[in-house]
């Protein structure tokens, strides 16, 4: 546990020592804030954060791979993976530490949006249940994006390749699980494709519905790709 946290802390701090970390936070807050101001702060709109949540889900599709692309690729490119792999820690420590750092960074990035909740509170009386569920949904979907991003970054020393692979993966997932495409195949494949849909699950969270089956799906998704990332790192020893 100590080694995992050591790796995680170094990684988390390095986000703030590099310009990319601040850039990602600034862009996300600017665009999500713009959307919130345009869509939610309008007379007659319900006092909710739904606009912010729905745009964030799409912004994260770009922002999360930008966070995760450097996690292992940068170590592979600069060669710092070698001292890490000769330290008396397992590949699990390295990979889980990296993942926790990225997740912590994502949550740090989301925290300032709580200001918007304050704004709504000033103007009206919001229902806090859906807001909590919405944030939980964002963290879940971000966690999925980061896990896949981590996996692709374990395979290449090129950050751009890691970024684009992650983006492409989720674009493809959105496409094949969209209602129009899924309707083209017969059961049971149709249900399977719908089941893979991150959008449908996140929509429930945005409505304020907390479904444990969705939580289990996201958790399993994250575990799968973290394990694959460990395999990706470990395979370097055998190549």
């Amino acid at each position: 546990m100590g080694a995992t946290l050591t790796v995680a802390w170094r990684e988390y701090a390095s986000f703030f020592r590099s310009s990319i970390g601040w850039l990602v936070i600034a862009l996300y807050l600017f665009l999500s804030g713009l959307w919130f101001a345009y869509d939610s702060i309008t007379p007659g709109q319900p006092a909710s954060m739904r606009a912010l949540f729905s745009v964030s889900q799409w912004l994260l599709l770009i922002v999360a791979p930008a966070i995760s692309m450097r996690l292992l690729s940068e170590e592979l490119r600069s060669g710092t993976i070698e001292p890490l792999m000769t330290a008396p820690i397992s590949d699990w420590h390295i990979v889980i530490g990296k993942y926790l750092a990225a997740l912590a960074f994502l949550i740090t990035m989301l925290l300032p949006t709580l200001v918007h909740v304050g704004v709504i509170e000033l103007l009206a009386s919001p229902d806090y249940g859906p807001i909590l569920a919405g944030y939980l949904g964002l963290v879940f979907v971000g966690a999925c994006y980061l896990a896949v991003g981590l996996f692709f970054s374990s395979l290449t020393r090129n950050q751009i390749v890691a970024f684009l692979s992650t983006l492409f993966f989720f674009m493809l997932l959105v496409f094949i699980s969209s209602p129009n495409v899924a309707a083209l195949v017969d059961e049971p494949f149709r249900s399977l494709l719908f089941g893979l849909s991150i959008n449908l699950r996140i929509a429930d969270f945005a409505k304020g519905v907390f479904d444990t089956s969705h939580a289990a799906f996201f958790l399993a998704f994250v575990v799968l790709f973290v394990v694959l990332s460990v395999v990706g790192v470990e395979s370097r020893r055998w190549r």
Binding site: T6, R10, S18, T86, A87, P88
Partner: peptide
């Protein structure tokens, strides 16, 4: 083992003492 790899890869954004403390933590 104490190992100095050939290209001596380091984290450029870290301060010397912080980097050494990080390595020390990895070694328990």
């Amino acid at each position: 083992l104490g190992y100095l790899p050939e290209s001596n890869p380091l984290y450029p954004e870290m301060r010397v003492a912080d980097f050494l403390a990080f390595r020390a933590r990895l070694f328990g």
